[in-house]
Design a protein around this nucleic acid. Sequence first.
RNA 1: GGUCUCAUAGCUCAGCUGGAUAGAGCAACUGCCUUCUAAGCAGUAGGUCUUUGGUUCGAAUCCAAAUGGGAUCACCA
Length: 598
Amino acid sequence: MKQLETQIAQAISTALLDTFQHTLPADQINLQPTRKEFAGTFTFVTFPLTKALGKGPEQIGQALGEALAQQAPEVAGFNVVKGFLNIEIKDTVWLQQFADQVSGLGADLSKTGPKQKVVVEYSSPNTNKPLHLGHLRNNFLGYSVAEILKAAGHDVVKANLVNDRGIHICKSMIAYEKFGQGETPQSAGIKGDHLVGKYYVAFDKAYKQEIDQLVAQGMDKEQAKKQAPLMLETQEMLQKWEQHDPETIALWEKMNGWVYEGFHETYRNIGVDFDKFYYESGTYLLGKDRVEEGLERGVFFRKEDGSVWIDLTEEGLDEKLVLRADGTSVYITQDLGTAELKYQDFHYDQSVYVVADEQNYHFQVLKAILKKLGKPYANGIYHLSYGMVDLPSGKMKSREGTVVDADELVQEMIDTARQKTDELGKIEGFTPEEAQTLYHTLAMGALKYFLLKVDPKKRMLFNPEESIEFHGNTGPFIQYTHARIAAIQRKAADLSIASDAAAFEGVTNLHETEREVLVLLNYADTTIADAAKNYAPSIIAQYAFDMAKAYNRFYTEVPIFQEPNAKKLSFRIALSAQVAKTIKHSMSLLGIAVPERM
RNA sequence: GGUCUCAUAGCUCAGCUGGAUAGAGCAACUGCCUUCUAAGCAGUAGGUCUUUGGUUCGAAUCCAAAUGGGAUCACCA
């Protein structure tokens, strides 16, 4: 597609020179898609030229159109509406492009694209509670962006930095020690991550009670939060952990082990994967070298109390602490360390962090510090910031029990998929296993598409009451289109209809709906490149939807198998196959599978 | 209070570096299944693109301000 656009732009440039003696390089000529209500594929806007040429916009359009129709072999015709020159492309050009595509003559973007080493860090869960809806957005985004970058030619590493230590883990541990009575995931029949999450909640409940009690005794609330016995015990436990107290470490390993089992089950179920796991317990001490380095270079400075800071006021940020007075690390120190570690491991060109937008400031600081330290990888840091998922009741709050649990949500989606499928009664002959697989495919398709079709940066609303639709702009709609085509292909195979490029050579004109599909097919690569550049799965989602819509229009308007002309019939089979392939590929970039039947 | 960010149809969202009468889906209403899967297609209705200024031949898009959401400004992570 890019190529065709370039050709047209070149032709316009030439025509401008010939007709008006005006120089405008082709790469400065912008074509936009023609609006549906007019004939044509590309539109050139002539308003900007009126001053330079001293002519009216229609006049310019008319003259350019005539020149193009005569000289550009791709152009079938044109029309001028006010300052808009609408250019129609010959059907044979579309057909030739399509034939090349079917024959695999086009370049494979994943091999020819700009190859960079990219680390995509995503998921990065805390090990004190199970995954919820917000994590799903993160996981789907991270997975999808990684796949898109791969498809665009990059060499991608999916990384997961597990937050496996710290005060929050100790809370679960304390609560388990106190109330657990030796309960295990097996004995309780609960997934490990959920069991640990249960104790995290139990901690919070008991903690609140203690605070209330202290306040009732006349203590200040802030004071009570610090003085509550549970909190003191938790802090003590954290210290023991840092001193490698064997008993504490054993409990920590046991409970984290449960959580990992639970997480891995969820990851498998939602279809995300990782090439590299980092654990914070192994990285939290990193970064101190960077502090030393910064002090030597004079980028950091030490205050009287011994704490170390960086002044980022020039960057429009504040002064930021990088090392506490007692010499221990803070969050940013760790991240300085892990950035370096990742660079040592992979020598990345880009390091993408899929992290919620509440940490925008943190990543600005991180990047600014690395720049000041003169790190070669600083410019490759990219914070893929995404908005929160809101519920109709407002923000999700784990303490208030208003979170939507990931495992439960997935199960509900599967149930919904089963119910809707059974209502339609189209899958007779499926084995129970096949049916189960289909429910899962549809459920994940609906859920992932729902979360990915929205621009990552934007906050989004999730309404669990209405659940997720299976009609309209949804994953299942696109999956359905694929299943429809699969049925066509089965029938074509039964009838032994050829669909290679030679089989439809000689077809010269297209139905309007066929042309629309062909135009879209030609945008496949530029769409992927665009999505990669913008780290935006939503662009792929939109493309897959447009494709499915265009195909369905074709499907209802053009009865494929009633076509008497063998070449045209072959063309339509080939067209369908190519659409199926493109849909399947696009959806795979979103982490969504497509069924052969549904 | 400082900084950042968002505001488009009743609802959920698209609208790329400024271009034609601002688009989808859901919800509402009308049609279309003697079969290539109706989880579909076609159509109707629904908008002062939060407001006010500015730049421009031309603004939902760029700039400024206002209003209203959200995030952040921890020796938490």
